[in-house]
Structure formats: structure tokens, C-alpha cells
Simulated assay, not measured.
Amino acid sequence: MAENIPVADYLDILSKATFTLKSFLSHHPALAQPRVLIICGSGLGGIADILESTASISYTDIPGFKTSTVPGHAGKLLFGLIGKNKVPVMCMVGRLHFYEGYSFQETTFPVRLAKKLDVSTVIVTNAAGGVNPEYKPGDLMLISDHINFPGLAGYHPLRGPNIEEFGPRFQPLSDAYDFELRKLFYTAAKKDLKISRNIFEGTYFFAAGPTFESRAEVRMIRTLGGDAVGMSTVPEVIIARHSGLKVLALSLITNAGVGDKPPYATEVDVKPLDEGMASHDEVLQAADEASKDVQRIIEATVNEL
């Protein structure tokens, strides 16, 4: 597992990345002061399609930025304008994950870089497995709280020396998911756009991955209060809040977690073990089918920021 580099070295790389992006944006004056960072989850890179007057830069051209290695994650930073109000945003088309072998310091680097560019709001999207029995593939869940399972075991994005210029040593998270932003999103979806798709609010359970959950783990997550489970988002949210940024986070439910106990070999009528088994292809397919609605809602939401 990758380890954190010393704070002085980290801040030096962050400064170089900031200089690189400011130099890049100096050629695009209308995009030079992004107000919102949008992080696109698996299969949700189509959010980039709602941006106008765009300019992109590859992750590999930004000091300190790691490369996304997951199918459905393009690996580029896209700047553009959203909505009638031409809100300037920066969009991560492809995120970085802990399970790819990166440290939390590396996976959350883009959030602190956004802070250095004076971004004030972060919108985080993800594809997640439904643990709440009411959730079906294609439903949306506004995240109102989370369970940071790796963090409770010591793998926390704020582990190590605190970087005082960003935030306090002990960061409160009881208000991690901004109420007004959630209200704005829901109003835009149901009142303004009249989206018929189910939109729930619930608790996101962060598991490190990359394996999908076992049946026993699904039952455990449900017992602990998780409504959806995924392999991202929470580290980025924690660093965003530590940096003083407002957060809106959205899960697209792409598969239903299988929590029934597996069949016993002694049973007469045995169901196949692969019934209901999750796959990344299933995740991408469900995301593709819902992406248009997600794009419309995010466009309407960002337009008001």
C-alpha cells in the first residue's frame, strides 16, 4: 500500500500542480475561476457532456495527479461552463481509488488542488450497490451520512500530521453533506424537471474494495445502518470538509446487494450461487441508462450555485 509523503513535499507538489493549472487556465479566461468541482463516478463520465466551452488536461500532465486505471474512468480534468448562468466548473472525468494501490493522500489530491483554485463546492457522484431492500437498480440516493469502515480501522485520509492551512486536527463530520445543496438537488429533480426516477436519502457505507461484498457482508452493512455501499467518495468528502468546502454527494444504485445466506449443499432444490451476483459491466450498464437524468439534475443544480 502506498504511504503518505512528508507534508513539506506534499505541499510542494500541490504548489506545482496549482501553478500548472493556473497557467493552463490563463489561456481560457472564462474558465479561470471554477466554483464547483464535480467528481464523476463509474459510468457517469457523461456528466462532462453538459459542460460548454470546455478545455481539458490529462491527469498525467498535472504534477502529483495519479492515473485512473478503472474501466469507465477517462482520466482527464475538464473545465467548462454549466447552465444558463454559465457557472465555471472543473470536472474529474474518472476518479482515483484506494484499491488501485494509491494512498488516501493521492486519491484526495484533486480535492485539495480544487481548494487552491478557490473552488467552494464539491459534487461527488458514484455507482453503488443497494443494501436497503427498498432500493432498486436505477434509483438515486442523496447521501446524507456515511460510515467510513476503513477509517474506523485506522485507514483514514486525515491520518498523519495535520495540514493546518486546510483545516483543524479534529474535523467534525456531523454536517458533512450540506442540507441546502441536497434540498436544491431534490427540488430541481422533482419540481423543476419532474424526474420520475426514485430519489432517496440515505447512508453510504464506504468499503475499500475492489471485491463486491459477500452475502454476510451485505447483511452486516444493513445491520450497521448502511443503505448503499461503494468503494469511493468518503475520503474525498472528508478532505473537502477539512478544506472548508460544501459537499453534495449522489449515489446511483446500479445493483442490489445479495444478502440472503448461500444455499447449503444438503438442500434438495439448490439455487445457483451466481444468482444476483454483481459485476462491473452491470454497474456501467445501469449507470448508462440513468446518466441522462443525472446530467439534467446536476446541470439544474449547478446553475443555481
Rank of each mutant, 00 (worst) to 15 (best):
residue 115 K to E: 00
residue 177 Y to N: 06
residue 114 A to C: 11
residue 170 F to K: 05
residue 137 P to D: 14
residue 166 F to I: 07
residue 160 G to T: 00
residue 132 N to R: 06
residue 166 F to T: 05
residue 114 A to L: 04
residue 152 L to D: 14
residue 157 P to W: 04
residue 161 P to Q: 02
residue 111 V to D: 08
residue 119 V to R: 04
residue 179 F to H: 13
residue 134 E to Y: 11
residue 156 H to K: 12
residue 113 L to T: 07
residue 162 N to G: 06
residue 145 D to P: 06
residue 113 L to M: 08
residue 111 V to F: 09
residue 174 S to Q: 15
residue 125 T to S: 04
residue 129 G to Y: 07
residue 145 D to Q: 06
residue 128 A to M: 13
residue 159 R to W: 13
residue 148 N to Y: 08
residue 159 R to V: 13
residue 163 I to F: 04
residue 169 R to W: 01
residue 172 P to V: 10
residue 116 K to D: 03
residue 117 L to W: 05
residue 141 M to H: 04
residue 172 P to E: 05
residue 163 I to E: 05
residue 163 I to A: 05
residue 156 H to I: 13
residue 160 G to K: 09
residue 116 K to E: 09
residue 110 P to K: 05
residue 130 G to A: 14
residue 112 R to V: 03
residue 156 H to W: 14
residue 171 Q to D: 12
residue 128 A to G: 13
residue 144 S to I: 11
residue 116 K to W: 01
residue 152 L to M: 15
residue 117 L to F: 09
residue 162 N to C: 14
residue 131 V to T: 11
residue 136 K to Q: 15
residue 174 S to T: 13
residue 133 P to N: 08
residue 158 L to I: 09
residue 154 G to R: 02
residue 179 F to S: 15
residue 130 G to T: 15
residue 157 P to M: 05
residue 128 A to R: 13
residue 126 N to M: 11
residue 137 P to C: 15
residue 169 R to G: 00
residue 167 G to E: 00
residue 177 Y to P: 03
residue 133 P to T: 12
residue 112 R to A: 06
residue 121 T to S: 03
residue 127 A to P: 02
residue 161 P to I: 00
residue 150 P to T: 09
residue 150 P to G: 02
residue 144 S to L: 11
